[in-house]
Amino acid sequence: MTACSPQSSSADTTSTASGATSTVEVRKGGITPLVSSSTSVQLASLFALTAPVKGWFHATADQGTYVHAGDQLGVIDNQSVTTPVDGVIESVTQDNDVAEHYPLFSIRYGGMSAEVDATAMLTIIGSDQRLAGRFQITDAQGPTDCAAIVDDGAVMPASSEQDTAGSSAGPQGAESTRTLQCLFPKDVQARPGQNAVVVLTAPTIEDALILPVTAVAGRLGSGQVSKRDGDSFTTVNVKLGASDGTSIIILDGLKEGDTVASTAPNLAPGAQS
């Protein structure tokens, strides 16, 4: 959610009369970043295993091999590259000095999945966080833990066919979204086309400064709040962190105990926009 910009020469000096405006206080607490999506069940598409660090990569598994969850497929800079689920290796990059996040293997998982656009969350928390996920198929069993959360954004083309469904890379490789797959355990009864809800969560961030999301205009990195300043409210720019959909982390611009309007700037009745 974003609000329209104030019609003022300075984004941090707009003031409004306090009147009967309700307020909330900046407080410290824990927050578990998450993204939730209503989506559809599909056949799992190819996913990539990427380089965890920059370094010299050497493959120890071959294209066409059926591998099991936890198997080592290669080594980079003395770190093992393992697969999170069973599957068939569709492609392998040649031994090379590769950059971090470079795709090393494409794996085909023989099960169902659901895709989630996690662009906003990953922009805030970074791509190195280990995510967990649960899904619920409408009118079916669940909720159930995802077998794995895998990235669709860097899949190498298979040697015999083009199968990059769900990849976020465009024709020239320009990435506009970060799509993640929740792979379903194979014992889950699911069919392509069924409706599902998927929730992905990152590790909990403790002792953070937080506000309700309803008090903040903006989401991706920066925003504004109406901070109480005596008998009036001043629009203040803030740096934003992760959100759990209810609360959002304030990284800069406010301190613990500050009071702000419970409604985001320009969303209150009578505010300029």
Rank of each mutant, 00 (worst) to 15 (best):
L240W: 08
K227C: 06
S38Y: 15
A261K: 11
V198F: 06
I248S: 07
A215L: 03
P52F: 09
A196I: 13
T119Y: 01
A165S: 10
V188W: 10
A158G: 13
R134F: 08
G170W: 00
V225G: 09
A268L: 10
S45C: 12
L183N: 05
P171Y: 04
F47Y: 09
A202K: 00
V53Y: 00
A217W: 04
S113V: 01
D231L: 07
Q181T: 07
G170P: 05
L220I: 15
E115K: 05
R108Y: 02
A44W: 05
T234S: 10
V41S: 12
D71R: 13
G230T: 07
V216F: 12
G166D: 04
A59N: 13
I89A: 00
Y109M: 04
C182G: 02
V35G: 02
D117M: 04
G245F: 03
V260M: 05
V85G: 07
D187P: 05
P192N: 12
G19Q: 03
T83F: 02
T204N: 05
N237A: 13
Q94A: 15
T179Y: 01
L73K: 11
A132R: 10
G87R: 07
P212K: 13
G218Y: 08
A69V: 04
Q7K: 11
T201I: 01
K54L: 13
L267R: 11
K239D: 12
T259C: 00
G142M: 14
T123I: 01
L200V: 08
V98D: 06
C146I: 08
M156Q: 08
G173Q: 05
A120Y: 04
T263L: 02
G218M: 11
T204C: 05
Y66R: 14
S232K: 14
G55E: 07
Y66T: 15
V260S: 06
L254G: 02
P33I: 08
V198A: 08
L200Q: 04
P192V: 14
A3I: 06
P171A: 03
M112F: 15
A48C: 03
F184K: 02
Y102T: 09
I124K: 08
V75Y: 10
T39A: 06
N195M: 15
G245E: 11
D229A: 15
L240P: 05
D252H: 13
D95P: 07
L251A: 10
D62L: 09
W56I: 10
S176K: 05
L209H: 09
T13I: 13
P171R: 00
D62G: 01
A217G: 12
Q42P: 01
D117L: 10
V53I: 08
A114D: 06
S5P: 00
P33Y: 03
S40V: 15
H68F: 11
A20C: 00
T177N: 06
Q129H: 12
E206M: 07
P171W: 01
S106M: 09
S113M: 15
Q224V: 01
G245D: 10
